[in-house]
Design a protein around this nucleic acid. Sequence first.
DNA 1: TCATGTTTGTGAAATTAATAACAGAATCCT
DNA 2: AGGATTCTGTTATTAATTTCACAAACATGA
Lengths: 214, 214
Amino acid sequence: MAVKSEHIPKATIARLATYIQVLSEFKREGTDVVSSERLAEACSVNSSQIRKDLAYFGEFGVRGVGYYVQDLITSIKRSLGIDRAWNCALVGVGNLGRALLRHREFSRKGFIIRGAFDCDPYKIGEVVEGMEIVCSRQLPAKVKELSLEIGVITTPPERAQRAANYLIGAGIKGIINFAPARIAVPKHIHLEYVDFFHCFYAAAFHIRFADTND
Amino acid sequence: MAVKSEHIPKATIARLATYIQVLSEFKREGTDVVSSERLAEACSVNSSQIRKDLAYFGEFGVRGVGYYVQDLITSIKRSLGIDRAWNCALVGVGNLGRALLRHREFSRKGFIIRGAFDCDPYKIGEVVEGMEIVCSRQLPAKVKELSLEIGVITTPPERAQRAANYLIGAGIKGIINFAPARIAVPKHIHLEYVDFFHCFYAAAFHIRFADTND
DNA sequence: TCATGTTTGTGAAATTAATAACAGAATCCT
DNA sequence: AGGATTCTGTTATTAATTTCACAAACATGA
Ligand SMILES: NC(=O)c1ccc[n+]([C@@H]2O[C@H](COP(=O)([O-])OP(=O)(O)OC[C@H]3O[C@@H](n4cnc5c(N)ncnc54)[C@H](O)[C@@H]3O)[C@@H](O)[C@H]2O)c1
Ligand SMILES: NC(=O)c1ccc[n+]([C@@H]2O[C@H](COP(=O)([O-])OP(=O)(O)OC[C@H]3O[C@@H](n4cnc5c(N)ncnc54)[C@H](O)[C@@H]3O)[C@@H](O)[C@H]2O)c1
């Protein structure tokens, strides 16, 4: 049983990711046990927030003691469904796609890019980080062959919908879209947008109007 | 006057960025006027949400008509403070840093990377996308010389705090941290975290537990 | 064993955000 | 011109999320 409650806020999922990051840091420092209070401080959140977030998934702490760091990392990972590897397809091997392919942390965290696809004939056949770039047309075959579950779109924005359509047709389960374009997907496909500019905009807003807001 | 109300929700700022994206798409398609209803549909939000978000900043629409697309883009940009250019410093010119440097969209959107800094002597002096990589030690001088306001951290996580310290010491106003590490900054410095893994985790969670959640 | 101190898990309260409802303003059509 | 229609801006309502507060659980030391 991984989920105790029915609906889990999106914000909770985002925070769980932060908790893992901070807990891993504690682990590296040699801390074995941590209280919600101390974890909260390191994550800049309220301590009840942490306890409530965890309560959606189960009881992971020991009263009077706190949380065993390694155990909590394991529990959160299981709760999020990242206690196993996920096979990913990368569509669009340009600047950003290459940076992602070269990023070791993806496989370390369990997201393994097993297929790199592009439609540019000059790029097809090229090998990046031990991965051969193949034609987008091969997506359906490769998705089945390699059990790819998550599609990562790093094409130009005007091609994002097409890339999504390929992925959906190939039977992918979720899509992470790095292109700054809204795309339409059937509702059984999980879709996440990553837009770097959002945070640049937010930074500009807060710096500019630092006196009135913030 | 850019801000009508005192406090503006973080979520509103994020949505405004989406509105700009979708409005720009409408503009390219030749649409001159759009209703909150239609914009809402394209952004997958509620139409009152849009009207309310905009109301924080002013009255941009015409009753019985809707919003003039170009005017609304201009108004939102002014509201966010992105009606002018922002000079940025990039610290850490590795895989991700290079992808960002090569990304034309940054300067098109008004975020101009004017300084690229690294501490690796083999990288210093190298020219990437017309930009010479200089030593991190030169940050204070360059921040003043080039009026850099936003610092972008793309160093490994264990170096993120040091990079932040350099930037803060140099007089930067805001920091966008792409490294998966929490960093401490004085409260007058605006800080944004960008963590790609958050959305991979969210995707894994929703796909894995598609039956119970979502 | 029992008192004391700590810290979790959780229901209740407070805060915040999202949605609905509608009056007022503009257009369009007859 | 005036009535019907459209669509914004704003207030009211509802829903969701966060914070508070405290009982229950465990640890420690006398
Ligand atoms: N580079 C960055 O730092 C950065 C930052 C933020 C967002 N983005 C976004 O990420 C996306 C990619 O950026 P980039 O800089 O890597 O662009 P890029 O032009 O370097 O790469 C795009 C790649 O997609 C391929 N492609 C185009 N259509 C395709 C299709 N239908 N199927 C498969 N492949 C296809 C192209 O051949 C090319 O290799 C863009 O949408 C961009 O806006 C990039
Ligand atoms: N590459 C990706 O796709 C990707 C994706 C998500 C997150 N990230 C994160 O972004 C960061 C950079 O990733 P990368 O793949 O580019 O790593 P990288 O190792 O290729 O680049 C890091 C660069 O930072 C420089 N550096 C180290 N310490 C520095 C300091 N104190 N001052 C200035 N420069 C310094 C290094 O010399 C190197 O050039 C990492 O924290 C990584 O976790 C990268």
